[in-house]
Nucleic acid binder design. Structure first.
Length: 444
RNA sequence: GCAGCAGUAGCUCAGUUGGUUAGAGCACUAGUUUGUGGAACUAGGGGUCGGUGGUUCGAAUCCACCCUGCUGUACCA
């Protein structure tokens, strides 16, 4: 006897990973089909790169540690470290460097794929998520940057958002570089802390973020964050620069000019847009939603941006002596879907099958005949796949959301007619076999 | 990573001076209805009380550590 109680495997999922159900997947499919349509229209190539890359190829140079988990999932294969990609931009840079001579310049490609981040998940943020990424590689032309913003907004509107629902914010590294020069701030440490603080203005408000420019800030949980320790007058100048909202870096001015030619107006210059510190070199963009998003408990949450990007003129050259400027934008598809599900009441056409009830297993031939007829007319249908009484079959059909059930038992076979029960109204119709598909089409 | 709160059935939760065999609603299964779902009634199944260790005659309840979730915060290519 099995007296030694075996330890059962856990039915829980690893931290930050989720099962996704049909409703979400159908909306995701809808979003993806909109993306593909727009990308084809804008002339981008479709590309796919693998999930794993050599760790150093995607910008992680690992210290000699057993487990390189600085935000990425990694393992050692033979003697080389591999990592799951954490975005689609770094693999693109690797791809371009590898295929530099063959690809057209400029190179426009888009990609859809899962990325993985080994970090703390939050509302609508997981450790595995689907990302969309579009890039222009090999051009300094700022029309590329402008067009990325235009294209992203076309995608969002195709997905059902209004102009008031989202804003594309733009700024530039050049703007902050200039600012630091004026302020005479040269310490890399101070610059980093200041940039991070600016990035937080949206969330914390100016007054709180200001503390991070000075001594530091204690948050609600009691945690203390060290500040940039800037002088009063320096902070004042930053405040003025932010409040003026004057785009005085040439690249942003140029992009805004291009926006006008596209009649694109749903942008906002916002110097508090910072993005990652590592590789952006010029214009940066961020897409923000303007409506409230709730978590599973109905509470409003800080949702943050659903995507962003910018110019990274040095990334490709990391792989060699290639002078290859580039610019790109990404969207977190799952986060967009999470928000969309709350914003719009999607009428998803998930056609559930008509269920043909089984009265008598010996009559399977007749059932398959009906089934074949329905499927030939492209009507989603199935013979009840389980075993059990009619009641159980009805309960099944009800549960899966089937629009109707076909009853074909002894009585029907005798009279040569099929009973069609509409599960929404509860009405039953006796129909001739030849009329069945037409009757069913009326229900859909 | 740091901090606050939480974890009892598939789900939502009740259950304190620590005391027999741990409860409810919904869901599930079977029946009332041998060919009829979404209502009702009856019966039934289902829990290592997040985990491990400790205190105690006795722990869902007290203590320690850990895991997981939520919220904020830090980092985020």
């Amino acid at each position: 006897m099995a007296k030694d109680k075996k330890k059962k495997p856990s039915k829980e999922l690893p931290l930050g990973f989720v099962d996704r159900q049909e409703k979400e997947l159908l909306i995701r499919d809808f979003v993806i089909s909109n993306i593909k349509e727009v990308m084809i229209k804008y002339g981008f190539q479709y590309l796919e790169t693998p999930s794993f890359e050599y760790t150093d190829s995607i910008g992680k140079f690992l210290p000699d540690k057993d487990r390189p988990d600085q935000g990425v999932f990694s393992f050692k294969d033979e003697n080389k470290w591999l990592s799951l990609r954490y975005d689609l931009t770094a693999p693109l840079a690797r791809y371009v460097a590898k295929n530099y001579l063959e690809i057209p310049k400029p190179f426009k490609r888009y990609q859809l794929g899962s990325v993985w981040r080994n970090e703390k998940p939050g509302p609508g943020r997981f450790r595995e998520f689907l990302q969309f990424d579009a890039d222009y590689v090999g051009t300094k032309n700022l029309q590329a940057d402008a067009e990325l913003c235009v294209l992203i907004s076309e995608i969002l509107e195709k997905c059902g958002l209004d102009k008031t629902d989202y804003t594309v914010k733009i700024s530039s590294r050049k703007f902050t570089d200039k600012l630091f020069k004026e302020l005479n701030v040269t310490s890399q440490d101070q610059i980093s802390i200041t940039l991070r603080a600016l990035d937080k203005i949206d969330r914390l408000g100016w007054e709180e973020a200001k503390k991070l420019l000075g001594e530091g800030r204690k948050d609600n949980s009691g945690d203390y964050t060290k500040g940039a320790k800037l002088k009063e007058e320096q902070i004042k100048k930053i405040e003025d620069a932010l409040k003026n909202k004057l785009a005085n870096s040439e690249d942003v001015i140029e992009i805004i000019k291009i926006f006008k030619t596209y009649n694109f107006e749903n942008y906002k210059f916002d110097p508090s847009v910072i993005r990652g510190l590592e590789y952006y070199t010029g214009p940066i963009f961020e897409v923000n939603l303007n409506f409230e998003v709730r978590n599973s408990k109905g509470k409003n949450i800080q949702f943050g941006s659903i995507g962003g990007g910018g110019r990274y003129d040095n990334l490709v050259s990391n792989f060699g002596n290639l002078d290859c400027p580039a610019t790109g934008i990404s969207i977190g598809i799952d986060r967009l879907v999470f928000a969309l599900m709350q914003k719009k009441d999607f009428k998803i056409k998930n056609k559930r099958p008509i269920v043909i009830c089984v009265f008598d297993k010996d009559k399977i031939k007749e059932y398959v005949q009906i089934l074949t007829t329905l499927r030939a007319s492209n009507i989603s249908s199935e013979i009840y796949p389980g075993e059990g009484k009619l009641k159980k079959q009805m309960e099944y059909a009800n549960k899966i959301g089937s629009p109707a059930v076909i009853l074909y038992g002894e009585d029907e076979i005798k009279s040569g007619k099929i009973t069609l029960r509409n599960l929404v109204t509860g009405n039953e119709n006796s129909v001739k076999i030849n009329d069945l598909t037409n009757e069913i089409k009326k229900i859909f």
